[in-house]
Every structure is written in C-alpha cells, then in structure tokens.
Design a protein around this nucleic acid. Structure first.
Lengths: 260, 260
DNA sequence: AGATATGTTGCAAAATACGGCAAATTACCC
DNA sequence: GGGTAATTTGCCGTATTTTGCAACATATCT
C-alpha cells in the first residue's frame, strides 16, 4: 500500500527475506517481521506456515527457527519405555555366548542390550555408538572395537563411509540392529539413507542378525526400507505387534521374539 | 515491557543461548539468566526444567550444570592437576581459529583442551578418544570424526592399526598431542609402541602440532621415544621445566609455551 | 535458630495461534 | 474494456500458550 518501497514483489520476496534473516539470526519473530514488511501478523504466520510445510524452517510460538528435526536427546530417549527396553536387552543377551563377536548398532534399545551383556566373558564387541563403546570398554574381559567415522550428534554414533567400510572388515557372530519403525507391511524402516545402508551392512556382516525394536515403533512410518532386511534372523520386541504386521514380517523371513 | 528494539526472545532462542552458555561455562545460574533475558526467574526455571526433561542439562540449586551420566576413572584422573590442565587447555584453544580442522589425542590433558574449545565455531575435530568425541559432538556447529579401532580400556580411546590408518586420511590444521613424559634429554616419550607410533602420525598429519603435557610429566622416564617428535611446533605446559630439559627440547625444534 | 535465597504452586494478564469471513488485489476469459 | 473467478490479505472473536506476580514451602548459609 503506502509503503511502496519494495512491496512490488509479493510473497516470494517476503519468503526470501525471511529465510535470509533466519539464516543470519537463527530465528525470526512474527512481530518483527510484520513490522518490517508492514503487513499483518496473520500474513506472516501464513508465510511461515508455507515455509514450514516445505521444510525450510520450524515453527515455534512467536516465530520460527531453523528447522531441526531434533529427535529428543539421547538420555531422554533412553528413559522412554525403559522397562520394555530392559526386557528386550535381557532377551537379546540370552542369545549371546561367552567368546562371541557381537555387533551392536547405535540407539537406545541397543544400549539396553549392551547393558545386559555385563555377565558375559571374553566378548568382542563392535559398535558405532560412542556411548556403547564407552560403557563396554569399562567391562573387564570385553574387547571393544569402535567403528570410526563422522559422528552424528543426534545418535552420538559414527555414520557414513568410514563406518560402512569398517563393518565389512569384521566377521560377526551375532548382531543387534535398531531401526526407525516397523512398517504396516512388516518391514523395518529407517529415517535416513545412510542409516538404512549401515544397518543393511550390519545384517550382511553377521552370522545371525536380530532387530531390536520396542513396541512404540509398530506401524510407525519412516521413509526408507532397510535393504536385505529379510536376511535378519529375527526381531526382538517387548509386545506382540498387530497380527497383520507380525505375520507380514514372518512371511518374509525374520522370526518374532517377544521378550517378557 | 515490550522491548521493542531488542529482538524479542523466542523461547527456543533462550534455550539455545542457555545451552551455549552451559557449554561454555559448565554451569549457568538462574539469577544471571533472568537478568540477561529480562524475564522472571520462574520463566528461566521453566526453561531449565524443559531442557532437563530433555536430558540436555542437570538441575542444581540456583541453576543448572552439564548433565554427566557416569564417568568414573577418566574423569577422576582429569581432576588431578585440573587447574594446570585447564590453563593448558585455554592456551591451546587460543591457537585455534573458527573453521579449523583440529586433531585431538586421547588423554586427560587433551580432554581439557577439548573442553576449552567450546567457544569456537565450525570446527572439524578428529579424535581417537571416546570421551572427547562424546563431549564435542554435543557442541553445536562442531563436526566430529571419531578415529575408529580397538578401544584401549585405560585410555578409553581407539588404538591400533585402524586408528593409525584413519589419521592418514585427514588434512589437519592443528593437532594437540599427549605423551607419557618429557625425558631429561628433552624428548617426549610414551608408554607403548602403539601409542608412540600413533602420536607420531598425528604430528605428521598436522600442519602444526603441539604437545600438551602438564608439569608432573617433567623428567619422567617412559620407555619409547615418539618418532619425529621434533616436527612438533611446540610444547604447551603449565610451568617452566628445568632449564636443562627445556633447552634440550628447544634445540631440537619445538617451542616452549608456558600457560598461566 | 534465624536470615537469606531458592523452589513450587495457583492464578491472572498478556501475547500468540487459529478459524471464519469480508475486502482488496490479481488473473483470466470473453 | 468489462466482468468473473481465484488468490491474497486484513480483521475479528475465541482458544491456547506463555509469562509474571504473589504466597508459601524448602533449602542453604552464618
């Protein structure tokens, strides 16, 4: 209207400016933006909503911040469903014998598995998880091999090329692998391409591989299938999944193991 | 009330700042934060509670501290001579600039260096130490690359062939390397063949390499010379070594840097 | 024990989010 | 150029969230 200075271009001009400010400051406020553009708060809110739908920022009360698919912190995730995870850990540890080479994926459920291994002797453990490596290297008579590589700060574990290559160098007796969800058609899926590939290689590297997923993951949809998922020996969980999902998975190969 | 000019503090913005300060100082106080943000103590308390629920910090009376699960042996060693080590850490961090690639060896003195890096941005850090990797991967805008390999349970760090090879893949701006002792003839020495070789490669991989040794190591005799030790740019320590030792070292190449 | 500082809770005020609806602008067709 | 449909934008009322205040319980210090 009366502003006329640069109101010539419409929404896209605002969007560009918003993203610019966001990149500069880390966050933007609706009040400041509406004052700057001489438009109403609702308009800015709609702009932000559009940008949020496109995944270019994250909405918060009063404005927006850089999009961050922040999974909850590891320490908190470890406590959610901790009873179920402990049960899964015990069941998993029951499959391990003294002297085995064990591959343990990153994640909170696998951390519970690691904690349950304390009674065993002469294990060789490979893991990409900093937390698990630290935990187990303090156990006497356990040899730990850390899979190196770039650290994902959310998982606090190595991901990427170096970790992938390192996995291939091991002959593993038994692997415990996490996942992002168990899809309705009975497949374990993951959040990222890297993660899916890494887990796939873990399965391939192990004599026997077990997924460990707590029941909150049932039916959850995450974008990527884990290749060669069906080579896994089984899925260890804390409650029976819906019949349709469980049967679909068992038909593809992996056994279903419900820990109590 | 409405602080017109001041960029209105979105709740998540406060959270970011709180975490930043926490990482920098190790602890934050409610009084200081409420003064800084111009909000009431209750608001800060609610912020801290949320962050604590997410496991991102630990609450204490009057504020919050870094959440530290359980780290026995190593952290205990880190306490010894901690004042000296902190000084060394600060001096070392002063040599680092935003955006550098930093290689940090395992050990308690190097851990102090890692802790002192918190103010810097866009660092890429390589380390064989589980503890340092875990610490720094929680820092925003810091990329961590864990050197993989078999974990030495005393050092809680990767040693051996895999770590040696991984070091060679990096182009490093600056490296901070530990050692077992500073021998009477002015050379840094180590306990094990593997350790000496690993440290040697770290020196070779870096544009500039600095040893970090606290003064308790002066004159200590450990069995193995660190090959190519003289390529290091300097030795950072907390007190001047005996003149004979210091002069012997400086003649071989490395400068002597005494932190205060 | 007394004094000071901190934590906790309930409640009210302010700011913000969300939906519906009308006005203004733009695009489009004839 | 006129007219109509579609989109954008602003305004309003209500629901939700956030924040500050006050009163009281608890902890810490001297």
């Amino acid at each position: 209207m009366t502003d006329a200075s640069d109101s010539r271009a419409l929404a896209p001009r605002r969007h560009d400016e918003i993203l610019k400010r966001l990149a500069a400051d880390g966050s933007v406020s609706i009040a400041a933006l509406s004052a700057f553009f001489n438009v109403s708060r609702e308009t800015i809110r709609r702009d932000l909503k559009q940008l949020a739908d496109r995944g270019q920022l994250g909405l918060v009360h009063g404005g927006a911040t850089l999009f961050e698919p922040t999974e909850p912190a590891l320490t908190q995730r470890a406590q959610e469903n901790s009873l179920a995870k402990a049960a899964i850990g015990r069941a998993a540890a029951g499959l391990v014998r003294d002297g085995m080479v064990v591959l343990i994926d990153s994640g909170t459920t696998t951390l519970a598995v690691a904690q349950a291994l304390s009674g065993l002797k002469n294990l060789t453990v490979c893991t990409p998880s900093l937390t698990i490596a630290l935990l187990l290297c303090r156990q006497p008579s356990t040899r730990v091999h850390m899979l190196g590589g770039e650290i994902d700060s959310g998982e606090e574990a190595a991901v990427g090329i170096d970790a992938l290559e390192a996995i291939g160098r091991f002959r593993v007796d038994i692997a415990f692998v996490g996942g992002g969800g168990l899809s309705p058609d009975g497949e374990v899926t993951d959040f990222t391409r890297n993660g899916a590939e890494q887990r796939s290689r873990m399965i391939a590297a192990a004599e026997r591989a077990y997924f460990v997923l707590d029941s909150s993951k049932f039916g959850r949809l995450t974008p990527l299938r884990i290749p060669r998922f069906e080579l896994a020996a089984g899925l260890i969980t804390d409650a029976a999944p819906p019949a349709a999902i469980g049967e679909a998975m068992v038909r593809k190969g992996p056994k279903l193991i419900v820990a109590t």
